[in-house]
Nucleic acid binder design. Sequence first.
DNA 1: ATAATAGTGTCTCTTAGACAATATTTC
DNA 2: GAAATATTGTCTAAGAGACACTATTAT
Lengths: 231, 231
Amino acid sequence: MVGFPPIYVTVDIVVLTVRCDRLHVLAIRRGKPPYVRRLALPGGFVHQDEDLDTAVRRELNEETGVDVGDVWLEQLRTYGAPRRDPRARTVSVAHLVVLADQPEPEPGTDAAAARWWPVDELSPRRLAFDHATILADAVERASARLEYAPLAAAFCPEEFTIAELRRVYEIVWGRSLEPANFHRKVTGARDFVIDTGRREQRGSGRPARLYRRGGATRLHPPILRDTGLAN
Amino acid sequence: MVGFPPIYVTVDIVVLTVRCDRLHVLAIRRGKPPYVRRLALPGGFVHQDEDLDTAVRRELNEETGVDVGDVWLEQLRTYGAPRRDPRARTVSVAHLVVLADQPEPEPGTDAAAARWWPVDELSPRRLAFDHATILADAVERASARLEYAPLAAAFCPEEFTIAELRRVYEIVWGRSLEPANFHRKVTGARDFVIDTGRREQRGSGRPARLYRRGGATRLHPPILRDTGLAN
DNA sequence: ATAATAGTGTCTCTTAGACAATATTTC
DNA sequence: GAAATATTGTCTAAGAGACACTATTAT
């Protein structure tokens, strides 16, 4: 292996959630150069004896205090432009994590610097390194996953109403969906959501049934975002 | 950056093509341990000043003599289990490359060891490292891409008939498609294929129109593989 | 009763899929 | 003409989308 200068391997983590009807991402304000005072995605070096997703769970816990028990976690893609970090050659394996709405990270811990930011307020200039690209790729991935995978439920609490599920689609896709058709679609798909039998009453209007996430790994047929405009 | 032992970063490349009506992958017989005489995917170390896809193109050219001008190249995913290579800790960024049928790699060159293998003849035990997993993931990715991306044309020569395009789908998906419906679908999708005006005559039967790949990056609506069975 | 939200019915239009029919070539 | 393959026509069924309608709660 001589002659091949080693490269630092890191993980970067795009943690998405929905709060106050907006898509949010977890980011940390940098305290030192490079990119002082800019925002960065949580992440860090992969340890010598650690699998990639193990590193993701460890960093997430260390840096943000997020409990990473049973969350949506998938590898996004790897970013390796030679000068993406001015200090040294690093290759970063980016991951996507999706959570239900969480309280703000605990103050007074290592996680204090981490905060939720509305994604649409993060102009590319506010982010360090190539993190704007990574974030954009993550949002696009989440958008695409909603079409045919049970990702929306990962944005919701354990039990949720169909309207809550629909709001996730609407917020991530930035368009409204027909409540009636959406309802039929997701309740009709086999094992996509499971009726708990309970109901929720939050305000005016007829109380909605509460559902849990079903065991299906795919939604078939998918809910397509567009009507061909993207062609 | 002290305290973080560096990790070797490599690229592994799954080069797929269709020859003789079967899906083939380019693989190299290993000459030394570990995994002597097993088959390995082409690949190698990422150089210090090289982007990831630059490394892919360089390795592909060096190891297989494949001309990597205008081919389908996409990043697949990154494999980083701590002991995936018994010699040292390596993280490999796997890529998918799709080509039209090529001649056998040139004998007498560095590429001599590389050969095309029918994918369905490569039992996991014949492959080195975690390359069986990578190959399986690559085939699954290609399968999925065919549904909504113009990947099939990458398996075909510059100009192709609709029947050739359909054969790609049939071979990768392992099922037959209705020629009439497939024809309507792909010729009807905007900018998916472009009629050259020419025709090809290869044997008996009415000569088929020749098409080129269109500029569309998406096929909408997609051609779905299954009818919900995968749910 | 009215407002509000949940959930169902129904209609139309598009598309997939099956398969018949036609077109154009070689033998 | 017979065989083979390409391409178009036609029918049916499923699903998407629009929207009317019913159900169940709070005020």
